[in-house]
């Protein structure tokens, strides 16, 4: 069984998908000869040739728009946007066309495309390379929004995204790309895109997160365990559709919840999780729900980046507070 990091899990899934379905086409800036700026598509051009792995001109709106056209023709384009910060001209296509094509033609045309994007802060990248604007996409009907947080989930969820018959926005946390390796079986098994993953069972507090913040959230659970506090850790993984039931079920057991997001606090996806708890889990709650997020400021340049990303200490403090709340 190969041992791969998260970006390796992405590459393995792309390779598998290209192998199993001749309609899968990988496209984007620098994805061919260069193998992608993060090397996510490394080696695919040599393996599958230039009719399956396409280096496009530098134009994000084009990349997403042409993917809509290709998908309507029955191909399964997997487009890479080099960084999430450059996706905004591509959002027009995702909202106005990709998400709507099936609906507005009542199923005559469909849009089985994936838009992959590295996202998030923490790798000392230049300006515009560090945002977490996943909530923008999670608002859009017709899309699926998926964020892996481990090499195995990158593999299984990306396979699911490519095989799905609807458009999927697939966000890859750059901070975790090379954080660690794990054994991932290249067995072609997809993971479900309609469920949260319970990464750790616990009874005293529920910690909910997704993407790169899963790292600090798991560290928080480890530290709490030293104090005898049993934390359940849930990786949302698929923000749309959101499997609130798994979170609600966990909070039924723990009565306490801390939600951790890298994005700025206001109107982020943590607010949706908190709203679900307020609407459907109030009677389970033994303490106020806490959201730990970045401040409502513009992502700083690399110099102040580490003070921007929510720190383990803040998560720990919130978790201890809600556990201590009588």
């Amino acid at each position: 069984m190969p041992e791969v990091n998260l970006v390796g899990g992405v590459t393995m899934a792309l390779s598998r998908a290209l192998e199993e379905d001749e309609n899968v086409v990988v496209l984007g800036q620098d994805v061919g000869v260069n193998g992608g700026v993060f090397r996510a598509t490394d080696g695919l051009l040599d393996l599958f040739g230039d009719k399956r792995v396409l280096d496009t001109p530098l134009a994000e709106g084009l990349i997403s728009g042409m993917s809509v056209g290709m998908a309507a023709q029955g191909l399964r384009p997997v487009a890479e946007i080099q960084f999430m910060g450059f996706c905004y001209s591509a959002i027009d296509q995702m909202i106005n066309h990709a998400s709507r094509l099936r609906n507005r033609t009542r199923g005559r045309l469909t849009c089985p495309m994936v838009m992959r994007m590295p996202y998030g802060a923490g790798i000392h990248a230049p300006e515009h390379h560090s945002e977490s604007t996943e909530a923008l996409f999670a608002q859009i009907p017709g899309l699926r929004v998926v964020i892996p947080s481990s090499p195995g989930r990158a593999y299984g969820l990306l396979l699911a995204a490519i095989r799905d018959d609807d458009p999927v926005v697939f966000l890859e946390p750059t901070r975790l790309y090379r954080a660690y390796r794990e054994q991932v079986d290249d067995d072609g098994k997809a993971l479900p895109m309609d469920t949260c993953f319970v990464l750790r069972q616990g009874t005293d507090v529920t910690l909910v997160s997704w993407g790169a913040m899963i790292k600090e959230t798991l560290e928080c659970a480890d530290t709490l365990a030293l104090d005898g506090i049993s934390a359940e850790v849930i990786d949302v993984a698929t923000l749309k559709p959101f499997d609130a039931a798994t979170v609600l079920k966990s909070v039924e057991k723990t009565g306490r919840c801390v939600i951790v997001q890298e994005a700025p606090l206001s109107v982020g996806f943590a607010s949706e999780v908190a709203a679900q708890l307020a609407e459907h889990g109030l009677m389970s709650l033994l303490a106020p729900v806490r959201r730990i997020a970045a401040p409502d400021v513009i992502v700083p340049l690399a110099g102040l980046e580490q003070n921007y990303i929510p720190k383990l200490d803040r998560i720990l403090e919130a978790a201890r507070e809600v556990v201590a709340f009588s």
Partner: peptide, 15 residues
């Protein structure tokens, strides 16, 4: 915005 769809359709035809 449909101009980009057109080149995507044409890409599929060419491939």
């Amino acid at each position: 915005s449909h101009t980009t769809h057109a080149v995507g359709v044409a890409t599929a035809m060419k491939l």
